[in-house]
């Protein structure tokens, strides 16, 4: 892609982010509940104290002015102070981000390693029992609500079978000094393999809960595109050339069949963000999703605003990556 096109894409980002921020801002403002009252709580406070706090938080200004100053600050990288933590929003989010990214990546891996082989097999064994079961699995996976799947997995594997912990990111028995913030990497860097194994056990259920609906979608996409590719003349021609079956399968069929899978995966990774909030809350996962849910409950406006912006940027970036991947895999398309 040439630089001009690249900047054009970046510029297209601006109105999207502006719109998303504005909608989030208005929705928060219209949600009943006063952050000042929630912060002060049951403590007796004089009207003066309340007024001072309101002014400190900048809540005494008119709505649009508040939005304008949020934007002005955000452009300079200042997202304000978290009402609740009394610390910069960027710092609070920064602390929580690695846990969420780690969970999302593991979920993505879970989704890819299950969906691609299953989708390919379902295509090759079209209309067999295996295909039917895989189809059923993907139907269930797509339609099952995330919280329900999470609770089901906790009930079966954590409570009844006690194979996995119920919640959290790592047990108290393990001390791991953060280096990258990614537990799976940090434990390895410390050569603390016991803690690594423990981390895997903790991440397993939330990652499966998060990854399964995506796996279901990707499986359908892979199956459909594999079926289509196997019908293509170039696969017949590859056979007519007398190539080895393995080469026909990987180089001619699979490579082309995975083009849609890869770009859908990149786009769907964006939807993991929404799933994160539910899954992190159910599994007590100390990530951004849970932080945002908590912040909504206490009307911690600046943090929610910043998180929404971050989600929007991530979502758009992932779409962008999807486009790039599609181009890289598909020489016919030029960005």
């Amino acid at each position: 892609m040439n630089p001009a096109k690249f900047f054009q894409r970046l510029l297209q980002l601006a109105p999207v982010l502006l719109g998303v921020s504005f909608i989030a801002f208005m929705m928060l403002a219209m949600t009943p509940g006063d952050p000042v009252a929630l912060i002060i709580g049951e403590h007796a406070a004089t009207p003066e104290q309340i007024e001072t706090l309101r002014r400190d938080l900048g809540l005494n200004q008119p709505l649009l002015q508040r939005f304008a100053s949020f934007l002005a600050d955000a452009v300079t990288g200042n997202f304000g102070t978290s009402f609740y933590h009394r610390r910069p929003v960027a710092e609070v989010i920064g602390e929580r981000l690695p846990a969420t990214i780690e969970l999302s990546l593991v979920a993505l891996i879970v989704a890819l390693v299950t969906s691609i082989p299953l989708g390919v097999l379902a295509a090759i064994r079209k209309n067999t029992i295996f295909d039917r079961i895989a189809t059923l699995f993907s139907l269930v996976g797509v339609s099952m609500p995330g919280f329900w799947l999470g609770i089901l997995l906790i009930m079966i594997f954590a409570v009844n079978l006690q194979l996995f912990p119920v919640a959290g990111r790592i047990g108290f028995s393990h001390e791991v000094d953060p280096i990258t913030g990614f537990m799976l990497i940090d434990t390895l860097l410390h050569r603390n393999f016991a803690a690594f194994g423990e981390t895997l056990r903790y991440i397993a259920l939330p990652a499966v809960t998060l990854g399964l609906p995506m796996a279901a979608i990707l499986m359908r996409v892979t199956r459909t595109s594999m079926l289509e590719v196997l019908q293509q003349d170039y696969v017949t021609f590859a056979n007519a050339k007398g190539l080895k079956p393995r080469r026909i399968f990987f180089r001619h069929a699979l490579k082309n069949a995975l083009i849609p899978t890869v770009s859908v995966a990149a786009i769907e990774t964006g939807s993991l963000l929404g799933g994160n909030m539910i899954v992190e809350t159910i599994f007590g996962w100390p990530g951004l999703g849970r932080l945002v849910v908590e912040s909504i409950f206490v009307r911690n406006y600046p943090l929610v605003q910043a998180a929404v912006l971050l989600y929007a940027v991530t979502y758009v970036l992932l779409n962008f990556i999807a486009d790039i991947l599609y181009t890289l895999l598909n020489p016919r398309v030029k960005l």
Binding site: H252, K255, N256
Partner: peptide, 14 residues
């Protein structure tokens, strides 16, 4: 063998 349609007989991504 050459196929009826050369447009589709060559693999577009190789």
């Amino acid at each position: 063998m050459t196929m009826q349609d050369a447009l589709t007989a060559l693999n577009p991504s190789l």
